[in-house]
Nucleic acid binder design. Structure first.
Length: 492
RNA sequence: GGCGCGGUAGCUAAGUGGUAAAGCAUCGGUCUGCAAAACCGAUAUGCGGCGGUUCGAUUCCGCCCCGCGCCUCCA
């Protein structure tokens, strides 16, 4: 079985074939650092994080590059509004993004280039484009002449003629053609600028990614990714620039993740319907957010709602409850094969555990089918619980084997998906603390009430016990009395 | 208007030319002094509508309806 990935350029799933295996270069368009990140950014980050993790798991030596766009109109505007240098705005939001993504458990890219540190590379590429007659300068502005690019529109499926008809392309007198886009913008007052052969100015948006991606990964790049909304014009223009400058193919496989939506509308700053990553992290466990963001296929739209996050939290809890029930193996090596004599109750579980690795690869090889993997996880959970419900489910060599197999499986999922690797008790504590915080309930108060109730139960004072139970219920606390007289509790 | 994606149980969501994974919710049961916790079980004769191809289609083809995305800064 080979890994197959959907290539936006060819519009089909293709066997993944890097230029120089086992080396893989992947470039992902990061964020423009003018404001806080929202869950849409988090989705993109987690999708590509998972791809990188899986490629590494499959034995590829991945170089992962993700840029920060720190030269941009919105950053400049914000800096001028706040009366701070544009670099301060950029630094602030780079730090925020970096922190949020770390909390979501994403691996740090190997290179995180910033546009402002690569102006020279961009100028060099623009000069090449001009030398090749693909770009022109007008009064300090430089534009890419789109009509010189025969393949323009190949990625987004657009035709130059149709674009030209569209009235929404802003007319700019300096441009020879309304379709042309800026490579270099002449400096305006109160804006940062860099010297260039065309006078002081700053780069256009698209050139940074062409310049930085080829600088760090060469050409062609194995995978270039980003959100679906970047296909046009950003990625289309990147292709025109990079291929125009080099004369060789820019990217082998283009990957795009679907948008995060709210009420079926795209989450975006301009619509104002966004949910900040930092806010989400305050209200939901990072692992639950990650699970949610991988719960539908990465190319499909994914609709955000608090209800969805709550449901996902319950699902992940179910996984950890089963893990907690199983317990950890105390010691000993992992026997390669399960014991010969299997009790009937253990058979389905053992069979599933034995085929798990293969099925995991099969699912992820198919264009990263994470929802399929989640389904598999819960079939496993059900079989585990069935086994644990039996008399046999506590002892014997098979129990030890299952514990070891479960632990191995969890490590693997943790490495590839960043999920299911937590300690079961830790996870429960995290969820509890989060829920208590949301409800403004104090941990000690709950413990105290539970102790009082248990005292009442011991003296058969059920009226008081029930009264306290109702009180706890009103606080959102639910619980389960254990056989040993202690009580475990949760917060809804 | 152009290009593209999608419509599968109450909600979310995989999937296959031969008869529908999983999660949440709901209902039933086990456990419990009781218990909305935990566990087990049940729940789509059906996969937007109408035709067609086929021994057989949710899965392929055509048309239609609906939703969404891109065409402008956007992960």
């Amino acid at each position: 079985m080979t890994l197959r990935l959907y290539n936006t350029l060819t519009r089909c799933k293709e066997p993944f074939a890097p230029q120089r295996p086992p080396k893989v270069g992947i470039y992902v368009c990061g964020v423009t650092v003018w404001d806080s990140t929202h869950l849409g950014h988090a989705r993109a980050a987690i999708v590509f994080d998972t791809i990188v993790r899986y490629l590494r798991h499959r034995g590829f030596q991945v170089t992962y590059v993700k840029n920060y766009t720190d030269v941009d109109d919105k950053i400049i505007r914000r800096a001028n509004q706040d009366g701070v240098p544009w670099t301060a705005v950029a630094e602030k939001y780079i730090a925020e993004y970096s922190r949020d993504m770390e909390r979501l458990g994403t691996v740090k890219p190997d290179v995180e280039p910033r546009a402002s540190a690569h102006i020279g590379d961009m100028i060099a590429m623009i000069e090449t484009l001009m030398a090749r007659g693909l770009a022109y300068e007008t009064q300090g502005d430089v534009f890419y002449a789109v009509r010189t690019c025969a393949d323009y529109g190949q990625l987004s499926g657009k035709k130059i003629e149709e674009l030209a008809v569209g009235a929404r392309v802003e007319a700019n007198e300096a441009k020879r053609d309304p379709l042309d886009f800026a490579l270099w913008k002449r400096a305006k007052p109160d804006e940062p600028s860099w010297p260039s052969p065309w006078g002081p100015g700053r780069p256009g948006w698209h050139i940074e990614c062409s310049a930085m991606s080829t600088k760090y990964l060469g050409q062609p790049i194995d995978i270039h990714g980003g959100g679906r909304d970047l296909i046009f014009p950003h990625h289309e223009n990147e292709i025109a620039q990079a291929e125009g400058a080099s004369g060789t193919p820019f990217v082998r496989c283009w990957m795009h993740n679907g948008s995060l939506t709210i009420d079926s509308e795209k989450m975006s700053k301009s619509l104002g319907n966004y949910f900040r990553t930092s806010e989400a992290l305050q209200q939901y466990d990072a692992e639950v957010i990650r699970y949610f963001l991988l719960s539908s296929h990465y190319r499909s739209p994914l609709d955000f709602s608090t209800m969805a996050l709550t449901d996902m939290g319950r699902a992940v809890t179910r996984f950890y409850d089963a893990t907690g029930r199983l317990g950890q193996a105390t010691a000993g090596a992992f026997p390669a094969a399960p014991p010969k004599t299997l009790p009937d109750e253990a058979r389905p579980l053992v069979r599933r555990l034995q085929t798990f690795h293969e099925e995991l690869h099969e699912a992820l090889d198919d264009d990263l089918n994470t929802p399929k993997v989640f389904g598999m996880m819960f079939e496993l959970v059900r079989d585990l619980n069935r086994y644990l419900d039996t008399q046999h489910g506590r002892h014997g060599p098979i129990h030890h084997w299952i514990q070891m197999a479960w632990s191995t499986l969890r490590q693997q999922c943790h490495r590839i998906l960043g999920l299911f690797g937590s300690d079961a008790a830790d996870f429960r504590e995290r969820m509890k603390a989060m829920a208590l915080g949301k409800r403004g309930v104090d941990h000690a108060t709950v413990e105290q009430l539970i102790a009082q109730r248990n005292t009442a139960r011991r003296t058969k004072d059920f009226a008081t016990a029930d009264q306290i139970r109702d009180q706890l219920t009103a606080m959102g606390v639910s619980f389960k009395d254990r056989a040993d007289g202690t009580t475990e509790w949760h917060v809804e």
